[in-house]
């Protein structure tokens, strides 16, 4: 990233605790306009928490998040709403409104925040649904479509108002390889054609290498590596290598329990494993 470009998004020294457990330790990240940054990491490493802090859903315990130079964490509800109108979020589950049809879901941000008349809104809805390949599903309820489709509708809704920044929480998990590829291509197209800045949280290595301009790997609540996809193809850090190559053995353990397995199994010793 060039030094002269003003970052569109900046995360500065963010820390977050849950019940005394530190989930994020001093996270710093600068994202330039039009850049696609992938936040990569194993399950439970704090990726989604970081995303929620950035979009203003969780307040950080320390540090700041700036979007367009404005502090998200200290913004008033009105300011935050104005910021939120300029970015879109794709939730992991799609988070569709279950009482509305697919079309109404995509139309809602337009109905709520614009004065467009119904005909135009309907047209935009069809266009956005076509982008994710679901134009024929406009009149179905979210419960009538599959999980992968719900996620794609969630994406159509997130881009309904042509946001400048898009946040994706696991956009490809649970999708078949073709849909994964379509979503990946869509993220790339949004960037190249419309200059949309994207922050993608995922553990899907293949997608990360394909769509990311930069990849940041989160492990244990901190970034252990930040670099280009090329850097990640030939990693120097053992933890990154284990993750990229998907190895069972390595410095990143699958098991995260702190207690001793045997004493836990037999019900002996201290409850905290000491």
């Amino acid at each position: 990233m060039s030094e002269t470009v003003e970052p569109i998004l900046e995360v500065r020294g963010v820390q977050k605790f849950f019940d005394g457990r530190q989930v994020l330790k001093d996270i710093n990240l600068m994202v330039a306009p039009g850049e696609t940054v992938v936040v990569l990491g194993p399950s439970g490493c704090g990726k989604s928490t970081l995303l929620r802090v950035i979009i203003g859903e969780h307040a950080p315990d320390a540090g700041h998040v700036y979007m367009w130079g404005e502090d998200v964490c200290c913004a008033s509800a009105e300011r935050l709403d104005r910021l939120r109108q300029r970015f879109g979020v794709l939730f992991q589950s799609g988070a569709l409104y279950s009482s509305m049809t697919v079309g109404e879901n995509v139309a809602l941000p337009l109905r709520e925040h614009t004065d467009l008349d119904d005909q135009i809104i309907e047209m935009v809805v069809k266009m956005k649904l076509e982008l994710v390949g679901l134009r024929d599903f406009e009149n179905l309820m979210p419960s009538q479509i599959s999980g992968g489709m719900r996620k794609r509708v969630g994406l159509a809704r997130a881009i309904a108002r042509d946001p400048q920044i898009l946040f994706y929480d696991e956009p490809t998990s649970g999708l078949d390889p073709i849909a994964t590829s379509v979503i990946g291509q869509l993220i790339i197209d949004l960037r190249t054609k419309l200059g949309v800045t994207s922050i993608v949280v995922t553990h899907d290595m293949k997608s990360a290498l394909r769509i990311g301009d930069r990849i940041a790997m989160l492990y244990g609540g901190e970034f252990i590596a930040v670099g280009t996809p090329e850097d990640f193809r030939n990693p120097t850090d053992e933890r990154v290598r284990q993750f990229v190559e998907g190895l069972a053995d390595g410095p990143i353990p699958l098991r995260v329990s702190k207690t001793n397995y045997l004493s836990d199994l037999l019900g002996v010793g201290q409850p905290d494993g000491q």
Binding site: R84, A95, S98, P109
Partner: peptide
């Protein structure tokens, strides 16, 4: 539970 409320909030819909 279905994150619908969070989705509303992040769409700037109170």
């Amino acid at each position: 539970v279905g994150e619908e409320i969070a989705a509303l909030r992040t769409s700037a819909i109170q």
